[in-house]
Nucleic acid binder design. Structure first.
Lengths: 158, 158
DNA sequence: CATTAACAGTTTACAACATGAACTATGAAA
DNA sequence: TTTCATAGTTCATGTTGTAAACTGTTAATG
């Protein structure tokens, strides 16, 4: 019996299986992204940006760049799109003329509500397909997975 | 006691938590994508395309468009990149002059091996961080999650 | 106080990813 | 033999994103 070899094969099989599972989760999320973007007729980056205004009166270009982890120049463009659609407006910061304060328009608030409603709905459906008694365990194992992903990531970047 | 209301809140909390977990998986995968692309100095779409040649002697533009689920014109561009890097070559199909047969060059084979080695390594690390006795359950719950995601997706597209 | 640093935001040029329509050329069917 | 289908390319366009150079403005420092 070649225990070592069969054990190696098992690990490789499991590694492969894990890759396929994670891939299919990612693919599914990208499909959801495409669907959302088409449903609301707004590029997805603009939707992401818009939702960051939830619970915030004012945000600056820099705030958004940090939150979205993209370059400031990207935010300039996204905000241009949102302003053209009348969802966001821009005023000067009375205390610092360098800064521009961005905030939602009434239509922006409405749009966020619509999008949030839709998002909550699909995530509720997602969780309702899982037996309530199994949810705790699902979260437990997902946390394990994420923990492992974080570890691998840190090791790579080290 | 307001059972119904607290139950609703619990569902919403769980829906929200699930969203956050899935988001962090997707983010992590995107980071891996970026890392891979930089490590090998090849755009990720070209890497994906290249790996599709694993175990295939010849592939056509159409084959690749179907496998990658993108427009043919996208494949034309990706193949241009791979040919410029000397990883893929193109010959005429002797049986049908419309068709171009794409295949790996020796360097292409080498590159695939490198990429596959790297990928297997990180996925092994990923699985090795999980207690061997818990892997079965992890897969079980991940399958449940994917099943649910598929159901929600089908309902949306219906 | 004047110069220099740092900061906020924009513009521009570029690259990667992706589609759709128009086009060329070939093969198959009527 | 005309017509239709197929394979692949080109071109125009849109989305996502970066980096560098630039304009103003504020803050720090000699």
């Amino acid at each position: 019996m070649n225990y070592e070899k069969s054990n190696k094969t098992l690990t490789e099989y499991q590694a492969h299986k894990l890759r396929e599972i994670v891939d299919s989760i990612v693919t599914c999320c990208n499909d959801k992204r495409t669907y959302t973007k088409e449903k609301f007729g707004i590029p997805y980056a603009e939707i992401t940006c818009l939702l960051l205004f939830k619970g915030e009166r004012y945000l600056t270009v820099k705030d958004l760049a940090v939150k979205m982890e993209v370059a400031k120049s990207r935010i300039t463009k996204i905000i241009k799109g949102l302003m053209a659609k009348g969802l966001v407006e821009k005023i000067e910061d009375p205390k610092d003329n360098r800064v521009k304060l961005l905030s939602l328009t009434p239509n922006g608030y409405k749009k966020i509500e619509e999008i949030e409603k839709f998002r909550l709905e699909i995530h509720k459906k997602l969780i309702n397909n899982i037996d309530p008694h199994e949810r705790g365990k699902l979260f437990y194992y997902l946390d394990k997975l994420i923990e492992s992903m974080q570890l691998v990531k840190e090791e790579l970047l080290k």
